[in-house]
Design a protein around this nucleic acid. Structure first.
Lengths: 108, 108
DNA sequence: AATCTATATTGCAATATTACGATATAATTT
DNA sequence: AAATTATATCGTAATATTGCAATATAGATT
């Protein structure tokens, strides 16, 4: 099918899954890593950095923006993107809970 | 196309993306959350918990196992699954770097 | 205002993912 | 050994994702 039965899961599960899915592509990881290093970028910076077309980069940026991983501010005729820390704090919290849980007992 | 140009990215980027993609589905988030609560499960436990078929659950468990998020041990005629903390430590480290980076300066 | 620069969107083709019924495999119980 | 229980795999249909060329949009520059 290819369709995910979102209606059967909690909002929290769907939201977390959406954010993680958005980060689940090497080009989007690379964009986030570029932003870690350079703090900000415009679309053209990433086009120069990655071997993907301008249309494809623009699409990846939109996906990151849709789930709140990055935010964009219009600056003249270009758009300046940067990371939104809140989302990463949410993810880190979830991962922390997992690690804490697992630390308590070994696997079966 | 639907095909990801993995060859253009670093191993680190591809591996991280694969793990995050595996977590990027609400059913698989739900499975991880079940394991947080119950520490371990067999396939049938998840089949009772989620409104998906046994075949589909088995598929999701395989995806989680393939990227090392869970591990499975044969116990009689069932397989006992549990979380593998190492993967989550990797993810948390990456998220921590992002948060640290962003804390240093505000967005453009 | 015409051109240039930067980004977004549309339309399309190829591939991937999701889900499930049916079936296979393997250990357990009767 | 036959039936039961537990899980995996196969085959298939429907939908989603990825990527790009072409085009649209909008601000900047000449």
């Amino acid at each position: 099918m290819g369709i995910t039965k979102s209606e059967h899961f909690t909002d929290h599960q769907n939201e977390l899954a959406n954010v993680l899915k958005a980060l689940g592509h090497p080009a989007r990881v690379a964009i986030v890593e570029y932003l870690i290093q350079h703090k900000q970028c415009i679309c053209g910076d990433i086009v120069n950095e990655l071997p993907l077309s301008q249309a494809t980069i623009s699409q990846h940026l939109r996906e990151l923006k849709q789930v709140g991983i990055i935010q964009g501010n219009i600056e003249g005729n270009s758009i300046c993107y940067c990371l939104n820390p809140q989302v990463f704090e949410q993810i880190t919290q979830f991962m922390g809970i997992v690690i804490e849980s697992v630390a308590k007992n070994k696997c079966c």
